[in-house]
Design a protein around this nucleic acid. Sequence first.
DNA 1: CGTGTCAATTGACACCGTGTCAAGTATTAG
DNA 2: CTAATACTTGACACGGTGTCAATTGACACG
Lengths: 196, 196
Amino acid sequence: MSREKNETRQKILDSTLKLLEANSGGKEVRMSDIAKDAGISRQAVYLHFPTRADLLIAVTYRLDEIYDSAGRLVKPTNAKTGILRLDAYIEAWFGYLPLIYGVVKAIMDMQDHDEAAKEAFDLRMQHIRNACETTILALQKDGQLQDHYTVETATDVLWTMLSIPVWEQYRFKCGWTAEECINRTKVVAKSVLLSS
Amino acid sequence: MSREKNETRQKILDSTLKLLEANSGGKEVRMSDIAKDAGISRQAVYLHFPTRADLLIAVTYRLDEIYDSAGRLVKPTNAKTGILRLDAYIEAWFGYLPLIYGVVKAIMDMQDHDEAAKEAFDLRMQHIRNACETTILALQKDGQLQDHYTVETATDVLWTMLSIPVWEQYRFKCGWTAEECINRTKVVAKSVLLSS
DNA sequence: CGTGTCAATTGACACCGTGTCAAGTATTAG
DNA sequence: CTAATACTTGACACGGTGTCAATTGACACG
């Protein structure tokens, strides 16, 4: 019973994921598109996910499973020095982002008109901010943090440097490769945050 | 004849502007809201502006008139050194942005589903990019530009630092004041771009 | 005075996508 | 045989954009 239910549910999630990836969060991912792809009726989708926002949010959790997002975040915390940690974190996050970009984009686009989507997204971004703060603290502990910053301001700056719109601009408006986004951001972050 | 036409047209533009400013680009600015505020029928709005995108784009030109956006951009070009120019430009642009933010936001939100809005917006952003490039060239001429950058890459970085989403994040997610956005961006930009 | 033109009005309607509702079908389990 | 569960079908409401057609009112010109 819950067996079959999960099967359809998974099919919906997988189709959504596939379509979002294919369309990079574009508009061609309506509830009806998802249903069609999953080979079920549009209403069946609503049976499992009351709103589009709920579905997209569920997809993010699926994403976490698939790509082991927790594991990725852990690795940088093993770094010995603050600087290594900064590099490792930029690499981990900007390496992960392209994989999940379609979904992220779709949720971002909903933020304005959907409260639930906004909350879910803000929560994720808050996690990123926390990681930034930890990184800043590590730098500070090493005495590497530029002295004119408070921890909070430095965190704000790093967080913004690693924000999705910034990555989007580098990637799609400036035409940088994913690699370049990582490496140049490493350079920029160090110029900004480190003392001499 | 063209007298009266312009009057209504202006009323529409002014109402749109007023509503967008009040709502910071929020959704409470439908064609019907604009019509109501202007004291005319919804269809009259369509008589002057075939689509919502057209109207918003027209509002940006109105904005240019009101705030003399050209004049603002000129000032930084008078700066003697590259560094002064950088400061002046950040001050000019981030000082201007809050004034026009409502409209900018509304157009940004349309980008995904409206080609015309996207083009208009991209064009504006391209102007900003050009200004960034000129600033970078001034720095380079002074021998102040960090040597590991090409002009293009340095321009990309500055342009992204001065992008609207970055300002939004500082302003609304980090809670910085408009002043702080300006001053801290000046500091950050200099750390990133200048050699020692 | 009548006629034409132009701006604006009124009201209806199509389209799209989300979400809701009700009735029906098919499978499975007790 | 019956009851529950998953799903289907088809209709519909809503909100917002954009279209269309018929009408009104003002002003101008001969």
